[in-house]
Design a protein around this nucleic acid. Structure first.
Lengths: 193, 193
DNA sequence: GTCTATACAAAGATAGAC
DNA sequence: GTCTATCTTTGTATAGAC
């Protein structure tokens, strides 16, 4: 991966997170980087190639972050989840960004097949990791048993993705924070009186 | 509103819910209706006009449904919310559809200003109605007080929107059902042992 | 109200010089 | 690796006949 290819991916990721995939053209990317469209086609022959590469990099980055957060046995499960929320909160702060795959999910059936597969893999691995974490919390007596780990993981992933999208569209700044607070109220064992 | 204009809106709504807005062209709509592009421009001069009209109609339809479900004092709050979930479950069943505004949220900053305003209004009114319903559930002792009605409403709206998107992209059929079950476990007072 | 025809811009993509 | 130049298709939109 050359430095230029990486900068192209940076711009492409940023544009998808703000504008979606179909609304982006090679010209938009070229304008930002001050190069020509042909240069971008040299690194990524087709738009599908470029889109797939962006998602692959994004998946790898988040997976590495998740694995790093997981290791420490002494950390409470909610603390680990709070680390996990980090990127989501950053996107929300930048006011115009959502999760890369959350943006792509809205136009999923119109995406090239390779990109569809990458997006599906992203959601599957996010859900699997969350389920594992929530099972940990239940095992350690930190979380309530009111729903299964699988159900809670699906709820959490859906709520986070939805919150980014609704917050950006609605313009209400605190929505994502409220949603994480609501999830905590759902999961965490109330202190015994 | 003529019959033809209505059929154009039907097709446009269907296409947005499956493919998103930017990926749609007048040609796509014309193909489905077996008319020419020019005919569609007669009814809706610009794509922004067409997009705004679709959202307005969608908002009105859902609001009417919500108001109808609300009236009955004897109905339990969770029953009312189950009615509210109806359209979401239908979209999920059709396997390729998400909420109209959920699809549009992914490309929000690239939408025409009029459409942005409509999408924002949709989310605001959905959230307000949900907050009112959840407050009713808390008042009547049907729901736990673990989170405020406002926080729970935001969680519920985000989770439903996200669930449709994640389910379609991930291909896991039961996700939306799991999410509504998880929300119920969050909200409803556990029966006293 | 729907058609044919057309204008005009932008899209994705490639060839070949440097 | 990046450029200029070009090809081809598609996009939104309008004019004017029927």
């Amino acid at each position: 991966m050359t430095a230029t290819a990486d900068r192209i991916l940076d711009v492409m990721q940023d544009l998808i997170q703000t504008r979606g995939f179909s609304a982006i053209s090679y010209q938009h990317i070229a304008d930002v980087l001050k190069v020509t469209k042909a240069s971008i086609h040299y690194h990524f022959p087709s738009k599908a190639d470029l889109g797939s590469a962006v998602i692959r990099r994004y998946r790898a980055l988040l997976m590495a972050m998740m694995e790093e957060a997981t290791g420490d046995e002494s950390r409470s499960t909610w603390d680990i989840l709070t680390l996990y929320f980090g990127p989501y909160l950053e996107f929300a702060d930048s006011a115009e960004k959502v999760c890369l795959c959350g943006a792509l999910a809205g136009e999923y059936p119109s995406l090239p097949p390779d990109m569809q597969a990458e997006v599906a893999a992203f959601f599957a691995e996010q859900q699997a990791w969350l389920e594992q974490m929530i099972a940990r919390g239940i095992d350690r007596g930190e979380f309530r048993r009111s729903a299964s780990a699988a159900v809670s993981a699906r709820l959490m992933l859906s709520a986070l993705q939805g919150a980014l999208l609704v917050q950006r569209a609605g313009g209400e700044a605190g929505l994502l924070t409220d949603v994480t607070a609501g999830l905590k109220a759902c999961l965490v064992e109330s202190p015994q009186p």
